[in-house]
Measured scan of single mutants.
Amino acid sequence: MSIQHFRVALIPFFAAFCLPVFAHPETLVKVKDAEDQLGARVGYIELDLNSGKILESFRPEERFPMMSTFKVLLCGAVLSRVDAGQEQLGRRIHYSQNDLVEYSPVTEKHLTDGMTVRELCSAAITMSDNTAANLLLTTIGGPKELTAFLHNMGDHVTRLDRWEPELNEAIPNDERDTTMPAAMATTLRKLLTGELLTLASRQQLIDWMEADKVAGPLLRSALPAGWFIADKSGAGERGSRGIIAALGPDGKPSRIVVIYTTGSQATMDERNRQIAEIGASLIKHW
């Protein structure tokens, strides 16, 4: 067993022997301040990774656009098919120029040779490549099948209805392509620590998230040296922004954090800054 596999296998073990965790309302004060600064709703939840206990939450059962955070769930569904012998990570998928959609920095470079399922998941999570996500959605049967996968996990809230990039439209009061912070946090925890996926697939999923290259201005910008984070960000229309993450000190994750916002007129930089400040408060009061 590799060191990384050992780390993920012992996530519940280490967490069980940690000192009790206590909620700190100071972080919620910052979440509410972010709402004021952005002029928009902000949803927040913080779960203990081992027990699933909610440590703090704000608007945990209000719907927010998922945006690209759905790509972690998508690759979880792909990995479940791999575990069941219905898919192979090494299978190569070929596609054409007509398949390319807006923001496809990886797939646009491989029109000639195609990409493997493993490479597509890596591109979808680490670079948020939209064509990679659409190609992977095709392998599982489309958005409705991802929703069905989530329902089978016990998540009857999260739903995907459309493809990239239309799913980022974020129309107010439109339930399409949305989740709730509580539902997303619980589902992410199941994917990373539950028995739904094999140990190898859980490790692969967290490795992809740990290698995320496009979430630097968010929670990662607030992390002290030595902290662990595996995350996936999302951005959408109407001032929408979000991030889902597993993080913790001492090089291992111990909490799940989900943050979503929508309806702001603020710039992307300002949305990023507010999420980073929430992260800084979380870490300060850990």
Rank of each mutant, 00 (worst) to 15 (best):
Ile3Leu: 12
His94Val: 13
Thr158His: 01
Ile244Val: 13
His110Trp: 08
Ile244His: 01
Val78Ser: 03
Asp250Pro: 09
Val117Thr: 07
Asn98Lys: 14
Gln203Leu: 10
Thr147Pro: 03
Met67Asn: 12
Gln265Leu: 14
Arg63Asp: 03
Asp99Leu: 08
Arg7Pro: 10
Asn50Pro: 15
Leu188Gly: 04
Glu270Val: 13
Asn130Leu: 02
Leu137Ile: 10
Ser240Met: 03
Asp212Ser: 07
Glu237Phe: 09
Ser80Arg: 11
Met180Trp: 11
Ala280Arg: 14
Glu166Pro: 06
Pro172Lys: 10
His156Met: 08
Arg202Asp: 03
Leu192Cys: 08
Ile278Asn: 00
Ala266Phe: 08
Val31Ala: 08
Met66Tyr: 04
Ala123Cys: 08
Phe70Gly: 07
Leu135Glu: 06
Met1Ile: 07
Glu237Arg: 13
Asp269Arg: 11
Ile140Trp: 03
Ile243Asn: 02
Ile275Leu: 10
Val257Met: 05
Val78Gly: 01
Ser96Thr: 12
Arg59Met: 04
Arg7Ser: 09
Ala200Arg: 14
Phe70Arg: 02
Arg41Ala: 09
Glu102Lys: 08
Val106Pro: 01
Arg63Gln: 08
Ala246Arg: 02
Gln88Asn: 13
Asp250His: 14
Lys32Gln: 15
Pro105Glu: 05
Ala40Gln: 09
Ala133His: 01
Gly141Trp: 03
Ser281Val: 15
Glu87Thr: 08
Leu135Lys: 05
Thr112Tyr: 15
Val78Asp: 01
Arg241His: 04
Pro181Arg: 00
Glu119Met: 06
Lys232Gln: 00
Ile259Phe: 07
Leu167Glu: 03
Ala266Thr: 13
Lys232Tyr: 00
Ala276Thr: 10
Ala148Pro: 07
Ile259Val: 14
Ile243Gln: 03
Gln86Phe: 10
Leu111Ile: 13
Phe228Glu: 04
Gly279Ala: 10
Ala280Ser: 15
Arg162Val: 02
Leu223Thr: 13
Pro217Trp: 05
Pro25Phe: 08
Gly279Tyr: 03
Pro172Cys: 11
Glu87Val: 09
Glu119Trp: 02
Ala245Lys: 00
Tyr103Cys: 05
Glu56Asp: 12
Ala182Asn: 09
Glu35Asp: 05
Ile278His: 00
Ala266Arg: 13
Pro253His: 10
Asp177Pro: 01
Leu218Met: 10
Trp208Gly: 01
Thr193Ser: 15
Leu196Trp: 14
Arg7Glu: 08
Arg255His: 05
Ser68Leu: 00
Ile206Ser: 12
Leu55Gly: 07
Gly154Met: 06
Phe22Gln: 10
Thr198Leu: 09
Pro12Met: 14
Ala211Glu: 14
Ser122Trp: 11
Leu199Asn: 14
Val31Cys: 14
Trp163Ser: 09
Lys109Arg: 14
Glu210Gly: 09
Pro65Met: 02
Pro253Phe: 09
Leu73Ala: 11
Glu119Cys: 04
Arg118Met: 10
Arg202Val: 08
Arg220Tyr: 02
Ser96Pro: 07
Leu223Val: 13
Val258Asp: 01
Ala200Tyr: 13
Val78Asn: 02
Thr198Ala: 11
Ala266Val: 13
Asp155Leu: 01
